[in-house]
């Protein structure tokens, strides 16, 4: 419940920022952030000295287990250094599979971009994340390391995410070391709208289970200079854990 109260506090803060345009500006709908709406993260951090509040809500239907899961996330990003940002995240889950409604893991993340993209080389980035237990499905400290690359040709951009997860609290039937691999594509529709799609292969946490294959397509819209709205829909297959349907709606506020 304490976490829920914190979440409400964040929601009020977010609402204040949203209705107070004088304090915020300069969001960027081409700067792809994980889960907004696709899972891919592009190679670029938010600007040095800026903050970004990100919120999203969504729904997943898991056909194999016949469960509905709702989720909401709040993240605060801080451009603490040039070419780097830090993240504090609070996910929340609710639905049939999650009784009672409760928070997911608390996320602490750092991302550093090594270089800007050139005509030959992609932009390259390293992201590290620690997830502190508290989630409905979690019983151990999680650590993730991810390599990110972004390269464009003309208006089209392609992204690669290669990640490693270590779950120190894995149960006997679960894997401790998990790998994932994602590719994505984005292209401007016009000056205010961006099309984005991705495809991920995640090693299933359950030993002996097939990988989770998933894809999402979505649109990111620059609503005004300080905020971005995004909507995505996707599908998963392979593992028994793969969601049949994913719907995600999010927005980002830069200040």
């Amino acid at each position: 419940m304490k976490i829920l109260k914190i979440y409400v506090l964040f929601a009020i803060l977010m609402g204040w920022v949203f209705v107070n345009p004088l304090s915020v500006r300069a969001a960027d709908h081409r700067n792809l952030e994980e889960n907004h709406p696709t899972r891919i993260e592009d190679a670029y951090p938010i600007a040095y000295r800026s903050f970004e509040l990100q919120s999203r809500g969504g729904y997943e239907r898991n056909g194999e287990f016949g469960k509905d899961i709702g989720f909401a996330e709040l993240e605060l990003k801080w451009g603490a250094f040039k070419n780097a940002h830090l993240v504090f995240g609070l996910p929340l889950q609710f639905g049939e599979e999650v009784e009672p409604d409760q928070n997911g893991n608390v996320i602490l993340e750092g991302l550093y971009n090594f270089n800007v993209e050139t005509q030959l080389l992609p932009a390259m980035t390293l992201k590290s994340e620690i997830s502190i237990p508290g989630g409905s499905d979690s019983n151990g400290l999680g650590f993730e390391l991810m390599g990110i690359a972004t390269k464009g040709w003309g208006k089209n951009r392609f992204h690669l995410n290669v990640g490693y997860d270590r779950n120190s609290g894995a149960a006997q039937n679960e894997r401790t070391h998990l790998y994932r691999f994602g590719v994505a594509f984005d292209r401007p529709i016009d000056l205010d709208h961006l099309f984005v799609s991705d495809f991920f292969i995640d090693q299933s946490a359950l030993k002996g289970d097939d990988p989770i294959y998933s894809f999402l397509v979505g649109i990111r819209k620059q609503v005004n200079p300080w905020s971005v709205l995004n909507l995505g829909v996707g599908h998963g297959f392979g593992s028994r854990e793969a969601p049949d349907l994913i719907v995600s709606l999010g927005f980002q506020l830069n200040f």
Partner: peptide, 21 residues
Amino acid sequence: GAFIALIGTGCALEKRDQIFH
């Protein structure tokens, strides 16, 4: 190996260096 290559190559290249207003 990929991470080491990424860090080694990236460190020597031009930075993005975007700064907020």
